[in-house]
Amino acid sequence: MDMTTMESILAQGLAPKECALALNELGKRLSAQNHTDSAIACWEKSVECYGKPGYAQAQLMKAYNQKRRESALSGDAQGMEHYAQKIDSLMQQSKDAIRYGY
């Protein structure tokens, strides 16, 4: 099975939990190669597939915070606000998933 790209994983029609696991692994590999934006895209897709708070949300929180910090250090106010709002949305999603199901 081709698990090297997000598209190839999604094309396999895996069950939500398995799809999320595969996307999480791909995101982890991309993050290790410093392809942060691609890793973020994988984990965001993983959350869409399977919403139970877990690995993807935790990694996204770290990644968004890293991006926010980079924006703050470079004086990019818009970038800072963009990733701060991403963090807010992620926390709301985690809260809603636990309260109302996923």
Binding site: P53, Y55, Q57, A58, M61, M91, Q92, S94, A97, I98
Partner: peptide, 10 residues
């Protein structure tokens, strides 16, 4: 806020 920790141990 506390939901930041929820993904680590739901």
């Amino acid at each position: 806020d506390c939901p930041v920790l929820f993904p680590y141990a739901p």
